[in-house]
Amino acid sequence: MSTIGWVIYNGNLPSSKFVDFARMLQEAAHRQNGELHIYKNNDLLSFLVSNEFKILKNTPESLPDYVIFIDKDIYLARQLESLGIPVFNSSRAIEISDDKILTYQELVKEEIPIPSTIIAPKIFSTGTIEKNMLTQVIEQLGLPLVIKEAFGSFGEQVYLVHSEAELREKVEQLQGKPFLFQSFLKSSFGRDLRLQVVGNHVVAAMKRTSEQDFRANVTSGGKMENYSPTTEEKVLAIRAAKAIGADFAGVDILFGPDDSRYVCEVNSNAHIRNLFDCTGINAADYIVRHILRQIK
């Protein structure tokens, strides 16, 4: 009897890249003689009644043997886990990955190198910004520096500021949102690495570059090329994925001074189409194989 799984993506987003990721995983499962049914997160309603968790859906299909969760709807992921269903990545891994502040805190616990970072104190939308706080940030990190909102994807919600006036203006704009300040690695301007980790292995990697933007994300106009990571880069990426508890993740690595490397982000649901187009390696096959081994 074949193993039956679900892959869940966000049905409220207009881009086709989300369902494309789901289909790549579904096709990979079929190649491994498994069944993987695609669901939107809004096809599955988390229903709570006294002493019971339920999932409301419009099909008679029974609950799956496992779920591949490529969305950030952690409440739905937790609901499925509460029903005893193995979820990959786990709701906790997704929660940490989705929040850059939590991610960096977990990385530092494991002594994984990151750019120097200051977490912005919680500032309510009606609060006031103390000049002393901005002065401390500049003294510690220098200028220019990077500001990152805690929640954001595809290199968006990341800003490079060059002056104290620019810094104050951006902080005022972000009042009411969680964000952080980070040292700017000039040595990594417009270039980074994306390593795809599955289990204990790096299965594919690419280098991304941009001539116009300090961010190298392809969505921001960056170009990509196949890359053969060093042993040290592989170990760093695997450690970063494990630090947030991810079974699979796209780990972004920055180039530091003196040929050093720093972890920039750990993406629990990193899309793999660009990686496939760049390297010819279909990470979906590795992800599904890893999960089937885990549940068996």
Rank of each mutant, 00 (worst) to 15 (best):
S15M: 07
K186A: 15
M133R: 05
P14L: 13
Q175F: 05
F151Q: 03
V146G: 10
K170W: 06
S188W: 01
Q140H: 04
M206Y: 12
G34K: 09
S268L: 05
A120I: 02
A205M: 05
F88K: 06
Y159F: 15
I114N: 03
Q294C: 12
P144L: 02
S183G: 08
I96N: 03
S15G: 06
Q157S: 14
A243L: 07
R273K: 11
G5Q: 09
S90G: 13
A243I: 09
L193D: 08
L48C: 04
L36M: 12
K148Q: 04
K109T: 10
E169V: 11
T231W: 07
Q175S: 04
Q136S: 10
D73H: 12
Y227L: 09
S187Y: 04
A93P: 00
E166A: 12
K100G: 02
Q196M: 15
F53Y: 13
I287M: 14
F179Q: 00
L102E: 08
I291D: 01
S46A: 15
P64I: 14
T209Y: 03
L167I: 13
A28R: 01
I238A: 03
S163D: 08
H290Y: 14
V203K: 11
N12I: 12
I287K: 05
E265W: 00
V7L: 08
K54D: 11
I287A: 02
G221V: 02
R168C: 04
Q212T: 11
E211A: 11
E225W: 00
E232H: 10
A249C: 03
I85S: 08
H271C: 02
A93C: 07
S260Q: 13
D258N: 14
A150L: 04
K223R: 13
I291Q: 00
P121M: 04
F151Y: 13
I291H: 10
G176K: 07
T209C: 08
H201L: 03
I4H: 12
L107V: 13
E233A: 14
F189Y: 13
V67P: 00
E35R: 03
S2F: 11
K148S: 06
G280A: 12
E35G: 06
M133F: 15
A29D: 01
D73L: 14
T3S: 14
F214D: 02
T117L: 08
S228I: 12
K242L: 11
L193Q: 08
V263E: 05
G127N: 01
E106R: 10
N51R: 09
A216M: 03
R289W: 01
N10Y: 05
P14C: 06
K148W: 04
S16C: 07
A283H: 01
I147W: 00
N58T: 08
S90E: 09
G199W: 06
G199A: 07
K72Q: 11
E110K: 15
K186C: 01
H37D: 09
L275V: 05
H271R: 02
P64S: 07
G5Y: 03
I70H: 08
N269F: 12
E233D: 05
Q136I: 01
D73R: 09
L174T: 03
I244V: 15
K177V: 07
F184T: 02
S260W: 05
E61D: 05
R239H: 11
G84I: 13
F184C: 01
D285E: 09
N267M: 07
N226W: 00
